[in-house]
Design a protein around this nucleic acid. Structure first.
Length: 920
RNA sequence: GGGCGGAUAGCUCAAUUGGGAGAGCGCUGCCCUUACAAGGCAGAGGUCACAGGUUCGAUCCCUGUUCCGCCUACCA
């Protein structure tokens, strides 16, 4: 029989493409709800359809793939559900930029044509990231790929919207919301990123209406909003200002007088001047203060956050100077005007948090408008409950409090977006009932639905309004927040609202793997919606992985130029190397700092694996005899026992989502136990290919390597499949072969202990070589002493192996440490083994230096141990085993020192001999 | 402002009931030994951030300090 041979270095490229295609062709990732295994399901965190793979995706999906492949091999009924989300704002931005480049705009095209255009773009470019996930080896069930705007998922969205509305958990109203003046849409609170910046704190004089010689000093960071002021607040218990409450001040630069009110909530007496201007239409706190004092709301900004002072009664000259300017440009002009007219008391630098749009980084404005909100408290309560009682586990647990804290303080969720790409809100309004046709926005012709128009919420357009009017129904032009549909992902992808076999088999899903950054955006909302509409949690475990940073710990960003492109890495080092690196570095609660050298290190690991396989195939020709483990050779029994431990460790660590420990365990085993030790040990046995020994060793080699490939497969799917296919194996693909399980007949404590003796012996021999300056290639004579006859006989049993591994000739073995050393040998002692060797050809001066150095180190340690043992408290209070360990240590160290002293004496004699010899 | 996490070898990180701190990468030396130089063998390298406390004994537990992250917040 002949086995195939492999190339000298592993070249990932062809291997990866070839096997991925075959896995797909074989339908190996396809999930069948009728499969008899216990279901194991995950939904992918849907990447933006506009996106392309970055390292964060690579980490996220590598971990999911490890879980999927591992569970699949364990025989579970695995579904890993893939797909993308429509990323409303981001996608619309992309297509709008294209239109802009073409000299047109979405308004010119009109809604329908624009949407056709986006769909076209999505069909062409939307698949990019999916292709990249496939390159990564993701074993998703691609036949089930979903998109948040698929018909089925859109139906789920409408169903949820209607039911939330029926349950009075959804309402429309005029509120202050976060507005992005560039995207021209509302944002939810968490779509605003806060960034610390240094601005200015301006102190402005507001003159009293009835005594213009007196003024109230008001502090603000936004002087341009004074045009929207409708009151000034002071603390009702502030003696400085209490007498002013109820009086009026003249608003600078305008022809208005505004009231002074007392407000203990809004005003912090310690801060600024103790007096605050109230701008209800442009500040969240002021909005609430405005409600408390029944203040008018004056809007002074338009959709683009340009000043519009028509309602503010601003001085004509002022209005002319700043009208239609963006805030950033208007502010310095206002500052100048205030200065010129003597209103500005002072301005000083001031640190503050500025809110920016998470999509485009434009400064967001609090903006008064009609929006749809989800009433969130009733949904949040059960979602808090399930995390508190552990029905949903958050791993690592440290994030649990983070989640709970946020959920307990959650605010209503603004779900309407003033864009076109997305799920258009299933609400209609009757113009006939309203009395007049709705106004249309001149920019895009979208209807402006008045606050008091009554919404008819339904899954499909109603034939008529409740009053029977048929011809003037207008659909709400807004679309829903993308996260609204993402929140349904764990059940909408399984067919809900239809009761499908998939839904039955795979919901609740088993695990969700995601990054911390979307814990609130997505995880929290899935839990709320899952509980509300499925009556059960959407997943049992949430594994939260860290952010990927660059080697310096900086967040990767295109502008910093420190982005590691996973596709480039895969091309250069192979996908398996990238995956393994990410898994190995995924320690919980810590950011992943990724440096390319680490990937290179694991590329080397793939090459090591590859070459070990080459070694196997070179020696696998010939008969293999399968004898019971207990009857196999010592190296065979040892590697089986170690393999057993590795299987147990990897499995346990994966169960606890310790990808880092699992991968380092498999790395350690393969490189340092299998390659460094085991393969070296079996070489002699394979020399005579026809021997009985060779036959059973070949069997062990094949069996262990094949098992090892299955153990490694979830981490490195490609190379393991490639090698596995060349080895004796059962089954068509490693993808569906069983994950290794432990076997009691493989484990042998006895063999492992014997091996430890060999290692001790070898280490001492190496140390002796180093001290005496003998090169590794030089054959030496050694004497090995066992501390007991049991150790001695173990050494005797493995005499040949020691000789072979350590390049030793005629090893002489004794059963005791006792016995004189008449030959002036160098003696080194370990716990159970002592080795002695000749110094004949050594570099004696070097040896002397080495021994003196070692001796000094040891003496320091002895002194420490002695000191501890001479402390009566220690002797009295330390536990007996610690005490005896210290005594033992002292004894051993003292012995070694004595032996070193002797060695020094011998070295002197040898040196002297050698000199005499040279002279004569 | 509040909360959480971190600080251990040159770098990145491990280390559970408190009893002489380990790995990978890097570095140094020797070796092209027929699986692998993307390799082998050996070695150097630590005040476990700082200061107190508890203890016979602290990298570990407690308190405080410094520095670095992250989350969160309406201090105009």
């Amino acid at each position: 029989m002949s086995t195939p041979q492999l190339d000298k270095t592993y070249s990932p490229h062809d291997v990866e493409n070839r096997w991925y295609q075959r896995w797909i062709d074989g339908g190996l990732f396809h999930a069948d709800p009728a499969h008899t295994g216990q279901p194991y399901s995950m939904v992918i965190p849907p990447p933006n359809v506009t996106g392309s793979l970055h390292v964060g995706h690579a980490l996220n999906n590598t971990l999911q793939d490890i879980l999927s492949r591992w569970r699949r091999m364990q025989g579970r009924n695995v579904l890993w559900m893939p797909g993308t989300d429509h990323a409303g704002i981001a996608t619309q931005n992309v297509v709008e930029r294209q239109l802009q480049a073409e000299g047109t705009s979405r308004e010119t095209l009109g809604r329908e044509a624009f949407l056709r255009r986006v769909w076209k773009w999505k069909e062409q470019s939307g698949g990019t990231i999916i292709g990249q996930l496939k390159k990564l080896g993701a074993s998703c069930d691609w036949e089930r790929e979903r998109f948040t705007m698929d018909p089925g998922l859109s139906e789920a969205v409408r169903e949820v919207f209607v039911r939330l509305h029926q349950d009075e958990l959804l309402y429309r109203g005029e509120r202050l919301i976060n507005w992005c003046p560039r995207c021209l849409t509302a944002l939810s609170d968490i779509e605003v990123e806060h960034e610390e910046t240094t601005g200015k704190l301006y102190t402005i004089r507001y003159r009293l209406a009835d005594d213009p010689t007196q003024c109230l000093l008001v502090a603000t960071t936004r002087p341009e909003t004074l045009f929207g002021d409708t009151a000034v607040a002071v603390h009702p218990e502030d003696d400085r200002f209490r007498h002013l409450i109820g009086k009026h001040v003249r608003l600078p630069l305008t022809d208005r007088a505004i009231r002074i009110v007392g407000d203990s909530i809004l005003v912090d007496r310690e801060f600024g001047t103790g007096a605050v201007k109230i701008t209800p239409a442009h500040d969240f706190n002021d909005f609430e203060a405005g409600e408390r004092h029944a203040l008018k709301r004056i809007k002074i900004l338009d959709l683009h956050a340009h000043l519009r002072l028509a309602d503010s009664l601003a001085d004509a000259a002022v209005a002319e100077a700043v009208e239609n300017l963006p805030v950033a440009k208007a502010r310095p002009k206002i500052e100048q005007l205030l200065t010129d007219q003597g209103f500005l008391e002072k301005s000083e630098p001031h640190k503050m948090a500025l809110g920016k749009c998470y999509r485009c980084k434009t400064v967001v404005e609090p903006f008064l408008s009609d929006q749809w909100f989800v009433k969130i408290k009733p949904l949040a309560e059960p979602a808090i409950q399930v995390v508190e009682d552990g029905r949903v586990r958050i791993i690592p647990e440290a994030w649990k409090n983070n989640y709970l804290g946020w959920m307990r303080d959650i605010k209503d969720w603004c779900v309407s977006r003033q864009i076109w790409w997305g799920h258009q809100i299933p609400a209609w309004y009757c113009e006939t009932c309203y009395g007049t046709p709705f106004l249309r926005r001149s920019s895009d012709g979208a209807p402006l639905i008045p606050s008091d128009a009554v919404a008819i919420v339904a899954k499909t357009m109603p034939d008529a309004c409740p009053h029977g009017h048929r011809d003037a129904l207008v659909q709400d032009p807004d679309v829903l927040d993308t996260w609204f549909s993402s929140a349904l992902w764990p059940f909408s992808t399984l067919g809900w609202p239809k009761q499908t076999p998939e839904l039955k088999a795979y919901y609740p899903t088993s695990t969700l793997v995601t990054g911390l950054d979307i814990l609130f955006f997505w995880v929290a909302r899935m839990i709320m919606m899952g509980l509300k509409f499925m009556g059960d949690v959407p997943f049992r475990d949430v594994y939260i992985h860290a952010l990927v940073r660059d080697a310096e710990g900086q967040k990767m960003s295109k502008s910093k130029g420190n982005v590691i492109d996973p596709l480039h890495v895969m091309e250069q080092y192979g996908t398996d190397a990238l995956r393994f690196t990410l898994a190995a570095m995924a320690s919980p609660g810590r950011d992943v700092k990724l440096a390319e050298e680490r990937i290179e290190g694991y590329r080397n690991f793939t090459n090591k694996i590859w070459n070990a396989a080459r070694f196997l195939l070179m020696h696998l020709d010939g008969e293999r005899v399968d004898v019971p483990p207990a009857q196999r050779s010592f190296p065979d029994r040892w590697i089986l026992s170690r393999l057993n431990t590795a299987i147990s460790t990897v499995t346990q660590e994966l169960e606890q989502y310790r990808f880092d420990r699992a991968s380092s365990a498999v790395y350690q085993f393969i490189w340092h136990e299998y390659c460094d030790k085991y393969i070296e040990m079996v070489k002699p046995a394979l020399k005579d290919a026809t021997s009985e020994q060779a036959k059973s060793t070949r069997q062990t080699l094949a069996e262990t390597y094949e098992t090892m490939m299955r153990l490694l497969h979830p981490f490195m799917p490609f190379i393991t499949e490639e090698i596995w296919q060349t080895l004796p194996h059962a089954g068509a693909s490693i993808v569906r072969s069983p994950f290794p399980t432990t076997r009691t007949d493989w484990e042998s404590q006895e063999v492992e202990q014997e091996f430890a003796l060999l290692e001790e012996c070898r280490a001492l021999m190496n140390q002796a070589r180093a001290i005496l300056g003998y090169p590794a290639g030089k054959k030496l004579h050694f004497r090995a002493h066992g501390k007991t006859s049991k150790v001695g006989s173990a050494l005797r049993k493995h005499k040949f192996l020691i000789e072979y591994m350590e390049n030793v000739e005629d090893l002489w073995i004794a059963d005791t440490f006792e016995g004189s050393n008449p030959g002036g040998l160098l003696v080194l002692t370990g716990n159970s083994v002592q080795v002695r060797t000749s110094m004949e050809d050594a570099d004696l001066q070097k040896a002397k230096d080495n021994v003196i150095k070692q001796n000094m180190l040891l003496q320091k340690e002895v002194a420490r141990t002695q000191q501890k043992l001479s402390n009566p408290d220690f002797v009295a209070k330390a536990p007996p085993d610690v005490l005896s360990e210290h005594h033992e240590r002292l004894k051993r160290e003292s012995q070694i020192i004595q032996l070193f002293q002797e060695a020094l004496g011998h070295i002197e004699v040898h040196t002297w001999d050698r000199k005499r010899h040279e002279r004569s």
